[in-house]
């Protein structure tokens, strides 16, 4: 197995998807010959031709509208939105169209073959519009799946599963990890299941839950806590929608405590959905209030990024507070 970074893992998944099906098409802004501003589609146009990997005009609502039509026609549409921050012009095409296509037509038509990939998350001095984590906006939309990997192995397996899933999937790629996260990834084809959380580290005192690049943060905090004799169960949610209530409930029923950490702002973030559900499912097992360690309810700032983010120290403090409640 080769050591590759997260971008290379994405590229490998796209390569496999394009090789296996002549109707698989990758497109977006600068995706073609240049291979994408992060180089995720590098070499694909060369290998599969301009008709199957190409630049689109600079218009996000057009990219996703086009993708909806292409997927409805039966082609495998893999659309790239250059930054998750710029997915909002396509919000209507995603929420009113892609998500409702199958339902509204009584399954006469669907866009199950659609996957939207987009670089996501902060920690790269990206300021307001190159740092956002918009998963909660989409989590409120029945009909979509939302998937976020934490490392190269996860990225390849989850992206291949997303492309082959018969539902429209938004696949957010933590761009802080694009080159920073390196790991062993099989060269061959494999898939990881959607809708399943993964217990990354077992523990007995508290459940720590996150997704994407935030996994590194909670793992670091778990390490600090273990030096204090606190045993943390670390869980990667992986799929935001539909999410794995069972795995999280089972973990919390065992540990009695839950801490959820996300990069996105606190209010109405996806952590709120998890907290509400788990307090309902696990009420008699909870020994402390469910903790949410999130971004502030502000736009994502540039100069004060360090203070803004839910870093490992903030998570660690919340662990201590929960355990000592």
């Amino acid at each position: 197995m080769a050591q590759i970074n997260l971008l290379q893992a994405i590229n490998s998944a796209l390569d496999i998807a394009m090789a296996e099906n002549k109707s698989t098409v990758c497109f977006g802004e600068d995706v073609g010959h240049f291979g994408g501003v992060f180089r995720a589609t590098s070499g694909l146009q060369e290998k599969y031709g301009k008709a199957r990997c190409f630049n689109t005009p600079l218009v996000e609502q057009g990219i996703i509208g086009f993708a909806n039509g292409l997927a409805a026609q039966g082609s495998v549409a893999i659309a790239e939105i250059q930054f998750a921050d710029y997915i909002f012009p396509a919000f209507d095409q995603i929420v009113n169209e892609a998500a409702k296509f199958r339902y509204r037509s009584g399954n006469e038509f669907n866009v199950g073959k659609l996957t939207i990939r987009s670089p996501y998350g902060g920690g790269i001095a990206g300021g307001l519009y190159h740092s956002q984590s918009p998963e909660a906006y989409f989590a409120h939309t029945p009909g979509l799946k939302v998937v976020i990997p934490r490392n190269p192995y996860q990225a390849k397996g989850l992206l291949l599963a997303s492309i082959r899933d018969d539902n429209p999937v938004i696949f957010f790629e933590p761009k802080r990890l694009y080159r920073a996260s390196v790991g062993e990834v099989p060269e061959e084809d494999y898939q990881l299941p959607l809708g399943k959380a993964e217990v990354v580290q077992t523990g007995t005192d508290i459940t720590l839950l996150a997704w994407g690049a935030q996994m590194e943060i909670i793992e670091k905090a778990a390490q600090m806590a273990s030096n204090d004799g606190i045993s943390c169960e670390v869980v990667d949610l992986r799929t935001i929608l539909p999410w794995d209530i069972e795995t999280i409930s089972n973990s919390v029923m065992k540990t009695g405590r839950l801490l959820i950490s996300q990069e996105a702002p606190l209010t109405a973030g996806f952590a709120s959905e998890i907290a509400a559900t788990i307090q309902s499912e696990c009420f008699l097992h909870l020994e402390s209030p469910i903790a949410r360690v999130c971004g502030l309810d502000t736009p994502y700032p540039l100069a004060l990024e360090k203070e803004y983010v839910s870093d490992h120290l903030k998570v660690y403090e919340a662990i201590i507070k929960s355990v000592n409640f």
Binding site: S23, V25, A51, R52, Q61, G62, I64, G65, F66, A67, N68, G69, L70, A71, A72, Q73, G74, S75, A77, Q93, E97
Partner: peptide, 13 residues
């Protein structure tokens, strides 16, 4: 734009 995508798929085929 969906029609554009649909037509593009027809052309690819």
């Amino acid at each position: 734009p969906q029609a554009t995508g649909y037509a593009y798929g027809q052309k690819l085929q």
